[in-house]
Simulated assay, not measured.
Amino acid sequence: MAPRSERQIFRATLELLAARGYEGLTVEGVAERSGVNKTTIYRWWPSKAALLAAALVEADLLVLEPPDTGGLRGDLEALVEGMVALLTRPPASDVAVAALGAAVHHPELAEASRRFFADRFAREAAVFERARRRGELPATADPMLIMDLLAGAVWLRAIFRGLPLDEGFPAQVVSAVLDGSATR
């Protein structure tokens, strides 16, 4: 398949997911919106779940490139700022929420979700490798746990609690994770 057609199909898939949710997403709708015949879509992806899984992993709508600010704290704050933007600004926020909801009920999408987060963590690993080389992070630190704590804070506040994330939130959450919250 031509890269341009694939991008159009993925964009149409994510737009329809954001607008209609998983139940309203159809291969016919994607075909119409992307200008591609539905048999072409079925040739590459056997189901709408497979199509959405590919779109989530391959499309660049939800991509956060790992920053390099020169320090771990700055890199993590920039990552949190990117997550905040993704989870609070349509269409990315609508896609993320709809995909998460659909993954709960569809095993194929749950697997895609795992691949998505594995891919994102592999990209973020460079932040931690640089921090270790600079002596900012001990070898015993668990980068995945750090990212889970940061991302979890963003998801919980923005999506599950529906609270606004002010400009100081990224620094606040990074400080809580890196510095702790209890008095010593």
Rank of each mutant, 00 (worst) to 15 (best):
R134A: 07
R134P: 13
R134D: 14
G135K: 07
E136H: 05
E136S: 04
E136G: 09
E136K: 08
L137M: 09
L137H: 03
L137Q: 03
L137T: 10
L137A: 01
L137D: 10
L137P: 09
L137Y: 14
P138S: 13
P138M: 04
P138Y: 07
P138F: 12
A139N: 09
A139L: 14
A139P: 02
A139W: 05
T140W: 06
T140A: 10
A141G: 03
A141V: 15
A141R: 12
D142S: 08
D142P: 12
D142Y: 11
D142W: 08
D142K: 02
P143H: 11
P143Q: 04
P143V: 04
P143N: 06
M144I: 09
M144K: 15
M144G: 04
M144D: 08
L145V: 09
L145F: 08
L145T: 14
I146Q: 10
I146L: 13
I146M: 10
I146Y: 04
I146N: 09
M147R: 07
M147A: 14
D148Y: 14
D148E: 08
D148A: 13
D148N: 13
D148R: 13
D148Q: 09
L149K: 09
L150A: 05
L150S: 00
L150M: 04
A151D: 14
A151I: 03
A151T: 15
A151S: 13
G152L: 00
G152R: 02
A153L: 01
V154F: 06
V154M: 15
V154I: 03
W155M: 03
L156D: 12
L156H: 13
L156W: 10
R157W: 02
R157L: 05
R157E: 07
A158L: 15
I159Q: 06
I159Y: 05
I159H: 05
I159D: 02
F160E: 05
F160M: 15
R161D: 06
R161N: 07
R161Y: 11
R161C: 09
R161P: 01
G162Q: 10
G162A: 03
G162W: 06
G162D: 04
G162P: 05
L163Q: 13
L163T: 02
L163E: 11
L163A: 11
L163P: 00
P164H: 11
P164V: 00
P164F: 03
P164E: 12
P164D: 12
P164Y: 02
P164A: 14
L165R: 06
L165P: 08
L165F: 06
L165V: 10
D166C: 10
E167S: 13
E167C: 02
G168W: 02
G168Y: 03
F169R: 09
F169I: 10
F169H: 12
F169M: 03
F169W: 04
P170W: 00
P170D: 01
P170M: 06
P170F: 00
P170V: 01
A171I: 05
A171P: 14
A171D: 08
Q172C: 05
Q172W: 02
Q172A: 15
Q172S: 14
V173D: 02
V173G: 11
V173L: 13
V174Q: 04
